[in-house]
Design a protein around this nucleic acid. Sequence first.
RNA 1: GCUCGCGUGGCUCAGUGGUAGAGCACUUCCUUGGUAAGGAAGAGGUCACGGGUUCAAUUCCCGUCGCGAGCUCCA
Length: 582
Amino acid sequence: MAKFDIETIRHSSAHLMAQAIERVFPNEKVQFGVGPVIENGFYYDVEMTTRLSEEHLQKIEDEMKSIIKEKLPIERTVMKRDEAISFFKGKGQDLKVELIEAIPEDEEIGCYGQGEFIDLCRGPHVENTGDLPQSFKLLSVAGAYWRGDEKRQMLQRVYAVQFKDKKELKSHLNFLEEAKKRDHRKLGKELGLFHFENFSPGAPFFMPKGAFVYNNLVEYIRRLYRIYDYDEVITPQVLDSDLWQTSGHYEHYKENMFFSKIDEREYAVKPMNCPCHMLMFAHYKYSYRDLPMRYADFGRLHRYEKAGALAGLTRVRTFCQDDAHIFLALDQIQDEIKRTMEMILTAYKVFDFKNFKINLSTRPEKKAGSDEEWDIAENALKQALDASGLEYFIKEGDGAFYGPKIDIDVADAINRYHQLGTIQLDFQLPQRFDLKFTTKDGGEERPVVVHRALLGSLERFFGVYLEHVGGVFPFWLAPEQAVIVPVNQDVHGEYAANLQKELFNKGYRVRVDDRNESMGYKTRQIQKAKVPFMLVIGDREMENATVSVRKHGEKRTFTWSNEEMFEKFKTLDDVKYPAQID
RNA sequence: GCUCGCGUGGCUCAGUGGUAGAGCACUUCCUUGGUAAGGAAGAGGUCACGGGUUCAAUUCCCGUCGCGAGCUCCA
């Protein structure tokens, strides 16, 4: 199978699927849109009256396999534009005609045919349907706008995965299974961390255990703030629309905001903290000596996201960011970026994210600010990254209109990437709010603003992290760190309760399971709750001042003396304290 | 917002044009147990909501809300 690369195989398989669809529905006018190769497979967009279901997918898949067995030769033909247009018109393939019309006049039109099926295509393809491996699977069908335009009709998009052999296909399907098991929505419900209610779509309800973890994440970030010299502020939830006019959100972001009218005044619920921080900076007069000034804010944000865009904790309507805005002079950018990168990577290490991609996005076509400012800003970001020695990628033209940015995508335990941290330079807001600071020579200068977040949205991070650890929180974050199980409640219960008290007084979250249930039952429950340690206490342990330990996910047990346990717990818990500065 | 699918006790899910069932969880009793379910009994549901068809709707149809897979969006 080394004869063709996987791209070609997937591409030809897309044609194969189209041919199969036509055969499975001989009495129907099936129109084809585009059928490109994507990561792990391919899809084809079709327009037809039958709504494709699971059973249809199976039939199509079977038909594809039989076309492979027919070993149809795949042949390329070239047509002139007019010829191609009338050919596809004749076949009723209006969508294809539209595609051809979009091709420049002087270009020749390539087509590939296999048996009765012929498709517009640039190629390349395998030489024979018999060359195609059967290592594919049709996964799903979903709506997709023709040409990605929400004003055009919606087609049915059939998704498939395809690999070079069955082994790879199987491992990919296993990966999908694994991902399903780790789904944060599932884990959140199972572990009693959070859930949703119909009364407020896109708004998670964090139950006590979930709230504990959530707050502990915030506490960790606060500890970093202490070291990195941030000042936390608290700002209002609802502000007059005039403010959003000034900030530009009213103009650019109105569709995503919640409004309310009271006392004949229009208010908006804040979708971002930045305007509040701009007001704070503008409220007093500051000197160059005060910069950089760092305002951190865990304020609650609300953004109206379209109903169809909501998804678990990854896309919500109410959330909070580990947000901060840094006010600084132009020549302080580079140092500050370096510092911020260091801070971000410190946090990722603690959360056990090992791989990440750093992207630097530069000026887009539609941008605010002068080219000189952009030069300074982009160079500062570049130099800071270069100095850090980290590998990064440049995304040309992908910056925000108000300034360039650095995004960090981290890989989770099953190697899926998620964008978490972001560092964005902003020239716009300081201007809109007419921010100034006094310079050394007594003059005035406009500060630059850096928006930055380490975890991004706490909600989203919670979801990503929950999937990363598969629901098994590390000791320092676990809502329940250990459960003590007395072998016999009457004999060992009191001793267990005393040990629990001692651990409680040392600051640990430990519970005694004194329910009238068997040990096997309790073990199962504790394992399912993914508690880091189960501590069993019976005669042996009472006598020797030890505990029988079972770590989550392990079958074997071992013994710790109480002293060893205290020591071990302390080490594991200390992770939450970031390294101190020199 | 759009397309398709889904919505049944707290959870996971069966099921039916004649108003419902399992397992887990919960309650009580028995059991005093050494590492993934000891035993028994019991309680718990306007079958998401609103309308329509029908003698009869949880089941069929329409609408609303919510969820899921995508599309679009994510200055």
